[in-house]
Structures are given as C-alpha cells and as structure tokens.
C-alpha cells in the first residue's frame, strides 16, 4: 500500500518537474519582447475598452501611445485631458488637448409632434428598421426609437424615454466615446463641444427635405427658412440642403437663433428661464 503511494508521489512530482522545465524553455524560446511601458500606460488608462479612441481596446491604444511619434490622432475621450496629461507625463511626451465633448440627440419627433402613421413589427433594432423603411412617423431622417444607441453605450449614459420614444443622454455619464454615433443608422447623434453648466444650443433636426415636406411629417422639423442664419451674429450657422447647422465651436450661446425659429427646431438646454414680455410686464407691475 505504502509503496503505491510513494510511487504515485514520485511519478507525479517527476511529471510536474519535467513539465515545468519544458514550459520554461518554451517560454524562453518564444518570448516576445514588449515594451514594459505599455503595461504602465494601460494601467493608467480608464480601462473601459470602449473603442472611443478608434483602437480595438485600451491595450491597443496604449501600444499606439508608446510607439507613435506624433500624438495628433491619439486621444482618449473617456479619460479626457487630465488622463492624457498623466499618460504623457509617464512617457515624457506631450498630449494634444481637446475640448471635452458630449453626445447630442438631434431629433425631437415625439408622437406629439410627429404623429405615428403606422406601426413597426419587425426585429426591434434601428438597423433593420432603417433598412426596411422610413419609420413609424414617416420621416426618413428621424429617430426610429428602437434603441440601438442604448445598446451600444458602455457607460449607461443614454436611455430611451418611454414618453417621447426618443433617447436621452445623461451628460454626466457620457464620455463622448462615439459608440452611439456609430450605432445610429441615421446619424442623428452628434458629438458636440461641452459647454459650461452643460448648456447646449443646437438644431434638433437633421431632415434635409424641403420645408413643406418636412413639416408635414413633423411639426418641429427644421424647414430650412434661414431665419437663424440671418440672425446669428457669430457666423456659427450654416445652411445646407434645407437644413440649418450650428457650429458648436463658433456658437457663443447667445440664444438669438432660438427665438426666431418658427418651428422650435432649435433647442436650448440648461439655460435659466428666459424673460418673456409677459413676465417682464408682471415684474414691471410689481415694481
């Protein structure tokens, strides 16, 4: 009995030792040299593996950071400037600063403004619905409301609002990785410069049809009337294919365009309530 146990132990130890030796030599033989700094950089990155930088993951991005001479195209939107500066310090390079961005949904075709004329009953993804037809509200540019962007978001920063049937971005959580922009088959979501107090002014419509056609499907569509273009003092607005676009960099948030828009297609968000003539009159009276 004892003998069996001893033989077993000796055999197992023998196999173990032999395997260890073989493994050691194989590891030596096939060793790939890797810059140890890649590990350090990877450690310093957020580690979300979201692909927002355009690389396959944080590791691939770390490799690029170490190997690339120029950092012009390298930026991690999740970590932001602070994080990039930290990595730059690690490697003794200089990071290119970028203005922080946030995802903005440019459609406000709620059932109230864009009446649903039919009902979609296919596989519940925007990609398939988009391939099939114009959508429940008939607007060929508008949000399909099936939430491909929500599925794409790794940061829980975009949610469907069941009341409006549209996605809403949680500004604090959004890292501007661009996954939702990529996922949206209609290119409704745009990354725009992040302003103080999360203030935003943007044209909440991407319909390029003629005004009369656009307004037929959706009451808050941009009809391409150019009124905002005329009123903008900073040349921030461009008109293209019956559609106004506000350049987020040039825009100084003066809110003049918001007032003149006849269809309320320009949205202002996180601004203090505006003094209307009526409230002014009331204030006047109170004095």
């Amino acid at each position: 009995m004892n003998q069996i146990i001893i033989v077993t132990i000796i055999t197992l130890v023998g196999i173990g030792t032999a395997a260890a030796v073989i493994l050691y030599f194989v590891a030596q033989r096939f060793k790939v040299y890797e810059d140890p700094r890649i590990d350090e950089v990877e450690e310093a990155l957020p580690g979300a593996n979201c692909g927002g930088c355009g690389y396959a993951g944080c590791r691939a991005f770390a490799e690029a950071l170490v190997k690339n001479e120029s950092w012009d195209d390298l930026y991690c939107p999740v970590g932001g400037n602070e994080n990039m500066a930290k990595v730059a310090e690690l490697l003794g390079k200089e990071a290119v600063e970028q203005a922080p961005q946030v995802a903005v949904v440019r459609c406000y075709g709620t059932p109230e403004f864009r009446a649903r004329t039919n009902e979609y009953d296919g596989a519940p993804t925007c990609a398939i619905a988009h391939q099939l037809y114009a959508g429940e509200g008939g607007c060929p540019h508008g949000c399909l409301g099936l939430g491909d962007c929500v599925v794409a978001c790794d940061f829980d920063a975009i949610h469907m609002n069941p009341a409006t049937g549209l996605p809403e971005v949680v500004d604090d959580k959004c890292t501007a990785c661009g996954a939702c922009v990529e996922a949206c088959p209609r290119d409704i979501i745009e990354l725009r410069k992040k302003n103080k107090k999360d203030r935003k002014i943007f044209v909440c419509c991407i319909n390029e049809e003629k005004g009369a056609v656009a307004i037929k499907n959706c009451k808050v569509a941009c009809i391409g009337c150019s009124k905002c273009y005329d009123v903008c003092p900073y040349d921030a607005i461009t008109m293209n294919n019956n559609l106004a676009y506000i350049d987020p960099v040039k825009c100084k948030l003066c809110r003049k365009c918001v007032v003149v828009c006849p269809t309320n297609a320009i949205h202002e968000i996180n601004f203090p309530p505006r003094k209307t003539e009526k409230t002014e009159a009331v204030e006047e009276e109170n004095k």
Partner: peptide, 8 residues
C-alpha cells in the same frame, strides 16, 4: 387604423 409594417 395604423398599418403594420414589418420585413417579409
């Protein structure tokens, strides 16, 4: 009623 649309 609203027509139903779905792929074939």
């Amino acid at each position: 009623t609203r027509l139903i649309v779905s792929p074939s």
